[in-house]
Structure formats: structure tokens, C-alpha cells
Design a binder for these strands. Structure first.
Lengths: 385, 385
DNA sequence: ATGAAAGCGCTAACAA
DNA sequence: TTGTTAGCGCTTTCAT
């Protein structure tokens, strides 16, 4: 039991340790090595108050030297909690989701939780993201960054654990939710383009089947943003008919293709090619055309397409996106956008989930479900100036 | 035990279930409900061959209706494996790392592993990323996407489990590693700019303290890329002295600031501002200046700065980056780059780690450590054409 | 084909 | 302050 000389050698057999190389050091091993009971060792290592300072130090030192690490499975089995929050994210490679993951993870870590992020998977043939329920619930709570999930899917995945959804939660009731400010944000974007002189507007990323009428059930990020844009512009007498919505994927490629199509159409419809610079002069020379992109990614793809086609931004068209991606500030021209305050959102979300976890494990009933909205602000940059 | 009418209601008490709302269904519960022993239920649910087909179906159905989910902690404690691979990533918001995470996760999922991704944390005051060793080792193996980690740090984090590092692994021996092809890739980039007529080159993102001489110990992504560039250009008689390396963070902001400084310097040094268009004419009008950015992110920031300063790309300067970010194709002008084949890399990495996990759990000794390199190819786009 | 017993490594509760 | 007992939920023997 006397303190040995070798400071570093982790697996140094202190007393009668069998020299099994694959042997993982267990609490019992440390107990044997120190001469104390398992309980005392356990208490010492976890800084419980009922161990003398001297012994605590001694135990900790020996445990350290033996390379002891508590077996997480056993601890979890006993404590019925892992201290890990799971974050399910749609796609790491989509910058907006990546940003969410980053700040959620930071926030959760700051609160003493470990974080495990996972992607939802693409289902076999379809492009649809699916959330395969995994066997093995080891997480204390779940944050789902899943734009188009239903409440019952959430409940199925949560399996009784506290859960919180970031996405389109318009018709959620029981499950905590954090929604993007689709409607007001999109409306602001439309107002902005109106103020910047746009009297004709196109929406990029809106498929033809989304409803425009007030009464329709508007669900999903896209439809809600789109509907808000239509409403806001209608207030100014600007109509978004089927010709003024260009469907496309919410990707760079999608935005690029959509804008290229649009540029061709504009050229045909009312363009007067000017010799030399090849730029497009719209028929209404004093009135630039507004381009509302339902996502910054779409907008970035569109900017590129406009550059290729000789459509000048912001002279011929004025472009605004949605999300507030960092890269937008460095685009040429820099991209106007409805920027989400992701860090603020993350703080709220994690605080709420942590509270729910605490409440559940202490048996206290939770207050009503939370339904918040991500703070946003409109950032006007070169693309709409 | 007769099949109930309600198909969905998961928690429907079948027989004498106590109406405890918080009760989680356990194997014993299912055993009691079905009338079989725990073992039979366990075997049935896991499709072990020693259960009659009829009973297996009956058991599965009842378990399903009771909402049974195996307790992962208990399973892990028994089996000594979780089926989860941990991926540690430097920063979700850095696109290159996000891309790694995406493909690693996909690959691991395809192989039947669950995946838990976590970020390394920023240490208190410093900007340094640290890898806090977490208490609680529940993962079967670890993939570390950590550009500047040392082998001993890896071993500390791995704690005996199979581990694999993606990053700068020039002096790794015992730990499996996947390295970026820094030297050949950067050399190719330099060659490319030479071929494109650049007779003077600047390197963006290279701090002054990195060594240039052959003998120095070149470690870390940056130093190795930088050294390779210096070597390659030296072969053509182009020197990279201290004036031709512009230090900056590997971020959009960093690249922007560095390029802005450089643009100002170029203007002063040998620029002849042309009335009207404000573009820069270099003294050697026939020889554009090469800009080697150690990262695509830096390059994107630089492109923006050049646009702001009226430096024409690729007429005045020719720019190339490193990584192959998707956005580079949509930049204005589109960005030349040394593109990494991330999916191929991910496949190799996960295959190797899976093999190591199998080997370790079956007691078989592993062959020697793997040291591979991410495949890459040079993509020439507008910024260097 | 099915069941009983034992124990993975840990910690709450109680006893000393 | 320290030690003993029991058991979290599951699965691997080893009977039956």
C-alpha cells in the first residue's frame, strides 16, 4: 500500500495484480490495491464528503496510477442516467445545421452534459431523411434538429425521455419546440425588397404545390416562409403567381439551376442586351426585380448563376436569403439575409432540456410544453442595396 | 394475452401491469406478461435459433405492444460493447470538418455501428482546441478528426480502445492514422500556378515562425503544406521569403484580412491605378501573381477582399485553395482547389476501425498500424484560369 | 426448446 | 469515517 516510485507507468501492478494485458482496471481492483472497501474508494473518487482527506488523496493517487476509469455502462445502469444529451441533426454538411450542432454542443457541454450528435439517415431510395429509432437508449434527453418531423415521430424516438424539436413545430402541442421565425422573417425580407424598389418578385425554392391561400394548412419551413412572402407582397399589390415561384432543392446546385432558368426567362421576356457588357436591362429599368431565396444556400447558388448570366446584382435583381450563414458576408456581392440568432437559440433550448431532464429524474412534473421562436434580424448587404 | 384492438397505444397494460406512468418496461416485465422465462424472451427478441417460431412471434408481438426497449446500459455492461463509434471533430462549423463528420457517420452507420459525434472544446482563455478526456467510456472505438493532436494525447483519450486519427500524423507510429496529402497536394497547387504563368507567389495562412528549410521538423498541416510549396516553387527559381507569406487565421475573416493587406501592399509596391475602372496593373503586366491559400476558407475570404479592392482574379492574381469545399464551385469567380476525396477516405477509415474493434474483442492481435493518405486531385477553376 | 442461477461493475441504503 | 448487503437489467453458462 505504500506509494510506489514509478509515477507514470499506468498499469503498474501495485500488489498482486495479475499481469493480464487486456485487463481493464475495475473498482474492485483499486479497492484491493488500496486496502479499502469498494464503497470508500467509490466515495473518495467521486468526492463524497464521507472520506477523510488523507485517504481520499491516497486513493485518488493510486487509482490514477492504475489507470482506473469508471465503467460507464455500470454507472449508467445504477444511476439511470448517462449525463449525455443526444442531438439529432439532419445533415452535417448543411451549414445551417452544422451551426446549430456547434452551439447546441457548446451549450450542453457548458452545462456539464456530454453530447452525442448523430445524423438522421437517408432512406434507401428516396431522398427523404429518416429517423431510425435505435435500439439502446442511453441518452438522458434528445434534441431533434429535424425540419419536417411530426410530433408522433418525436414521441416514438424519445421513448419517454425529455425531447425538444428544432424545426417546423406549428402544430406541436405536447413536445417542446423551437421554431424558426419563418413567417415574420420572410415577411420582413419581402418588405425589405419592396422598400428597395422591387415591384416584381420571384421566390426561389418554392415548389408549385405549396398553397398560397390564407386558409390552407401551412406546415413546414418552406410553405410558411413562402406564404408569409406572398401575404406581405400582396399588401403592396405585388402578386406571386405560379410564374413567380421557381422550385428548386435547397442546395447550391438547386439555387444555381433555378436562377439560371430565371435569368434565361428574364432575358427572353423583357431584356435588351446591351452591346459590349452583355448585361441585362429590364424593361422596367427603374425597378429592379426582387429575388427571395428561401435559404442562404439557394441564394449563394443563385448569385453565382446571375454572375454567369450577366445579370447584375443588385442593379438588375436584388437578392435576399434566409439563415444568416457566415459565408454570406463574404460572397461577391455580399448576401442580404434573414439571420437567425443561433447561439441565443441554443442557450434557450439546452436550458429547457436540462430543466426537463432534472424534473423528470426528480419526479417533479414539468410545466407546460415550451414553444419558442429563434430570434432573428434582417441583415441588408450588397445583394439588395 | 389476446391480441388487443388498439394497434398504436404502446403502453397499454396487458395483464397486471401496475399503472405506474414512469415505469420503463423491462425484460422481466415482458417475461411475466408472456409467461415465458427471461431467457426465452431474450432469445426470441434477439432472433436466437433456440426458440420455436410460434413463440418467437408471440413474444415479439407482446414486447412490441408493451413498448419494450432493451436497456442499453445493461446490455453494454454484459456484452462489453456498445456498438457505438465515437467521432471527435474539431469544429462542426468548419465546412471541411463537417464534411468529414458526414461521411464518417454515413460509413459507420452502413456498417451497423451507431455514431456519436462530439466537438473538442475550446480551452478557457486560449483559442486552442482541447480534448477533455471524459469519464465514461462507452464507445467501442474512436475516430479523432484532430489536426494537431499528439500520439500520446490520442492514447490517453482512447484508453485502450481502438483509435484512429485523421490529421497530421507524420510522426505517428503506434496509432492508426489518415493524413491529408499535404505535401504533394500543396506542391501540385504551386506547380499549377507556375504553369498558369505566376512568377511571383504569396502564401496566405502561413505564420512567420514556420520553418522553410529542408531539415526542420515539419509537423502540422500548415507547416507541411507551406514547406512543400516553398520547395516546389524553389525548383522554378521562385522564392517565398518572409514578405511572401501572409499569416492569418484559417477562417473567412482571416483570409479576408490577409488579402486586404496584401492588396494594399501590391497597390503601393508596383501598381499603376488605371483611371475609371480602378483595377490594379502589376508592374509585370504579363505575369499574374500567384496566391496560394492554405485552406479554401482562407481563399474564399481572400476572393472577397480582392473583389473589394479592385484586384482582378484571375487577371491580376491567380488564387488556389486547399480542401475542395463545395461552395468553392459557386464562388465568384469559382475557386481552384486541391480537393480531398472525403468519401473515399471515410470508407477506408471506418473499415479499418471496424476491423480493429473486431480484432480486439476477439482477442486477435492487430496487424501493424495503418498510415494512409487522403486521396486528392487538383481542380482548376476560374480563379486560376 | 426452455429455465435457473450467477454475475458484468457500480452505488444507494443501511449498519457498525 | 468505513464496510456490508443488495440489486440496477441483461445475457452467458449449464441444467432440464
Amino acid at each position: 500500500m505504500q506509494s510506489s516510485q514509478n509515477g507514470v507507468d499506468a498499469a503498474a501492478p501495485t500488489t498482486t495484480e495479475p499481469a493480464d494485458p487486456n485487463h481493464v482496471v475495475t473498482l474492485a481492483d483499486v479497492a484491493r490495491a488500496t486496502g479499502f472497501s469498494q464503497m470508500t474508494v467509490s466515495n473518495a473518487l467521486r468526492d463524497r464528503p464521507k472520506v477523510s482527506e488523507a485517504n481520499r488523496r491516497k486513493i485518488k493517487e493510486i487509482a490514477q496510477r492504475m489507470g482506473y476509469q469508471a465503467n460507464a455502462a455500470a454507472t449508467m445502469l445504477r444511476n439511470r442516467r448517462s449525463g449525455i444529451i443526444q442531438i439529432v441533426i439532419d445533415d452535417f454538411e448543411v451549414p445551417f445545421h452544422a451551426s446549430l450542432a456547434k452551439y447546441l454542443a457548446q451549450e450542453a457541454t457548458a452545462r456539464g452534459y456530454q453530447v452525442a450528435v448523430r445524423q438522421s439517415e437517408r432512406s434507401g431510395s428516396a431522398e427523404m431523411r429518416v429517423l431510425k429509432t435505435e435500439r439502446g437508449l442511453i441518452y438522458d434527453g434528445v434534441i431533434l434538429d429535424a425540419p419536417n418531423i411530426t410530433e408522433s415521430q418525436v414521441l416514438a424516438h424519445a421513448h419517454g425521455r425529455p425531447a425538444l424539436v428544432i424545426g417546423d413545430c406549428a402544430d406541436f402541442s405536447a413536445v417542446d419546440s423551437m421554431d424558426t421565425a419563418c413567417a415574420p422573417g420572410a415577411a420582413d425580407a419581402a418588405e425589405h425588397l419592396w422598400e428597395r424598389g422591387c415591384r416584381e418578385c420571384y421566390v426561389l425554392g418554392a415548389p408549385a404545390h405549396w398553397p398560397t391561400d390564407e386558409t390552407a394548412h401551412r406546415t413546414g419551413f418552406g410553405p410558411r416562409r413562402f406564404a408569409a412572402i406572398v401575404d406581405a407582397l400582396a399588401g403592396h399589390g405585388v402578386r406571386i403567381d405560379d410564374d413567380h415561384r421557381i422550385p428548386c432543392d435547397w442546395t447550391l446546385e438547386g439555387g444555381h439551376a433555378a436562377a439560371a432558368r430565371l435569368a434565361a426567362r428574364l432575358r427572353e421576356a423583357h431584356a435588351v442586351p446591351v452591346a459590349g457588357d452583355g448585361s441585362v436591362q429590364t424593361a422596367t429599368a427603374t425597378s429592379p426585380i426582387g429575388i427571395l431565396c428561401l435559404t442562404d444556400t439557394v441564394a449563394l447558388g443563385a448569385l453565382r448563376a446571375f454572375a454567369e448570366c450577366g445579370v447584375r446584382v443588385p442593379d438588375d435583381v436584388r437578392v435576399i436569403g434566409f439563415d444568416g450563414l457566415a459565408i454570406g458576408e463574404y460572397a461577391v456581392p455580399s448576401l442580404s439575409t434573414v439571420a437567425m440568432d443561433v447561439p441565443a437559440m441554443a442557450a434557450t433550448v439546452v436550458a429547457r432540456l436540462a430543466a426537463a431532464i432534472e424534473a423528470q429524474s426528480s419526479g417533479a412534473p414539468l410545466p407546460d410544453a415550451m414553444h419558442e421562436t429563434i430570434p432573428y434580424r434582417l441583415v441588408a448587404r450588397e445583394s439588395s442595396r
